[in-house]
Design a protein around this nucleic acid. Sequence first.
DNA 1: ATGTCCGTAACCTACGGA
Length: 252
Amino acid sequence: MKVATWNVNSLSARWPRVLEWLTRHEPDVVLLQETKQNDAKFPFAALASLGYDAAHHGQGQWNGVAIVARDPLSDVERGLGDDVEARFIAATCRGMRFYSCYVPNGRALDNPHYDYKLRWLASLRERLAARDRARPLIVGGDFNVALSDLDVYDPDAFVGATHVSPPERDALRALLDTDMVDLGRRFHPDEPAFTWWDYRNASFGRGWGLRIDYLLADVATAALVTDVRVDREARKGEKPSDHAPVVAELTW
DNA sequence: ATGTCCGTAACCTACGGA
């Protein structure tokens, strides 16, 4: 099974790239974030013609998460707790539970959105802590947190900034402490493996990236993973998202 | 500090958000 997570930064704007990527890589399950469209605009029919089932939790202009899969999806859940924004969707496919998460950006340490981000992460942690550990689970998404300095191109440039503050990193570590494995870091222990580069400042060409997109799996499922990579090719070319997909292969 | 892109509302440009 090939599983990917990808923040597409508007599925409408990204559709040509997403279509090409699905055709080229033939993933089994794709966790999408920032679709930025309503359910009515989501390309269910186009995906179906490619052989994909899909579940979407849309909100129009902002946010929006989806799960796209070659096999039928069931038990779809939309929204995390009482959150009013479209940042979480869960579904089951081939006996595996999947979450697609778009964690709030936070904006700045003194911004109310930062507290919202920490509350959101705490809520996700509660959900993970209370889960049925016997049930295989893959959690993917844009977490808007760089877990360690290895995940940041220039830690000195991020002093006092969001995405790297100790409370954010603690909140992400607390997720992992529910016996979830950071698959990207497990397979790439020594290299940055960035997943996002700012559109500004020619950041991609300069290597000014962050690793803020993650695939997490429960310990038993993580043992089935044979490869994890960041598809930097998707960040190149015409009208790319500012995020690259993270792709895992597992024997499932 | 900032060299971009997205959607929106309303125009032919500006703004919030990322």
